[in-house]
């Protein structure tokens, strides 16, 4: 089934064997509340790694039955992250989620050379799935959060993550637009040059499972009328499923403009590690948290 709205993920997951979400540093009500709600919605099972005493207290306050969860006692935040990662490496969890620990410590746990979640030479990145009421389907975009200025090889990795995410959402042959400020191929602007090179790589079968075209300006990515006006011949332009951003600023502005000015909803995950990892913050709405957990679970499907 092809997902065109974020909530459709919930329907898919509800009827399947549950993936196990491991919350690292589940020492606050936001984290425990999110895990509990996700479980109630039938999206995942949960493991809470953190200060057991605090966890039990919070459960009591929030009227959550703690026996529904495996609780692993580790009061220190850095060690709690390491423990959560170890559980996943031992096959006792499928998804990682950040709790009450700062992002640096969380990421360091994932990136740890010996005990982390990275395969050799893997690129850690971030994928956001946007549901904008003004677009006829989801937009899968990256990297809006982790890699500031990806080089060509990192862009290829991000492109592949966008494609994998699309596949996880049932989009068989996603249309991937490589964003720049114009459609002109020129060596003078790195965004345009890299986009052309990646397009050629896809033509050569070095990037599989998608239609890829770039450079394309934003209007050419998502607006068929602009494509017609400009006379661009492309099997991607005007109907993109995925958009690769040339740098973090453009991607970050894009998704925030979508959410703040166009009522878009979103789910987001950290990709490139052995399992999808969730990085939501306390400021995120419940919708965003649930969509992110569901997205991670969707991406984990098909993996043992």
């Amino acid at each position: 089934m092809m997902i065109t709205k974020l909530e459709q993920m919930f329907d898919v997951l509800r009827n399947e064997q549950k993936k196990v979400l491991v919350a690292a540093c589940a020492n606050d009500s936001h984290t425990i509340g999110a895990v509990h709600q996700a479980r109630e919605m039938g999206l995942v099972e949960g493991v809470l790694v953190g200060d057991e005493k605090k966890i039990l207290n919070i459960c009591k306050e929030e009227k959550i039955d703690p026996s529904l969860y495996r609780i692993v006692n580790e009061p220190d935040d850095v060690r709690a992250v390491a423990r959560a990662v170890a559980l996943i490496n031992a096959g006792e969890g499928d998804l990682l989620m950040k709790g009450l620990v700062n992002t640096d410590k969380y990421m360091r746990g994932i990136l740890n050379k010996e005990n982390g979640l990275m395969e050799k030479k893997a690129v850690l990145s971030h994928v956001t799935v946007l549901e904008n009421p003004n677009y006829h389907k989801l937009m899968i975009v990256g990297d809006v959060a982790i890699i500031p200025l990806p080089d060509l090889e990192q862009k290829v990795a991000i492109t592949n993550y966008l494609i994998q995410t699309a596949h996880a959402l049932g989009i068989e042959k996603p249309k991937v637009a490589l964003l720049a400020a114009s459609e002109t191929v020129t060596p003078k602007i790195p965004a345009n040059a890299d986009a052309a090179v990646i397009t050629k790589m896809a033509e050569r079968g070095q990037i599989k499972g998608a239609l890829v075209d770039g450079p394309l300006a934003m209007d050419l990515c998502i607006d068929p009328e602009s494509v017609e006006l400009k006379g661009i011949v492309s099997d991607v332009a005007g109907d993109a499923d995925c958009i690769l951003f040339p740098n973090i600023e453009s991607g970050n502005v894009f998704y925030k403009t979508n959410t703040k000015l166009a009522n878009a909803n979103l789910g987001a995950v950290v990709v490139g590690a052995r399992v999808p990892a969730i990085l939501s913050s306390r400021g995120d709405s419940v919708e965003v948290k649930m969509a992110s957990i569901a997205l991670a679970a969707m991406m984990s499907r098909g993996k043992a």
Binding site: V185, A193, A196, V197, T199, K200, M201, R204, Q206
Partner: peptide, 17 residues
């Protein structure tokens, strides 16, 4: 194949695009 390790292949990718 297009490879960032071979500048010619990058030039060629750009020219064909």
């Amino acid at each position: 194949k297009v490879s960032p390790h071979f500048q010619n292949s990058i030039d060629y990718a750009l020219l064909s695009r």
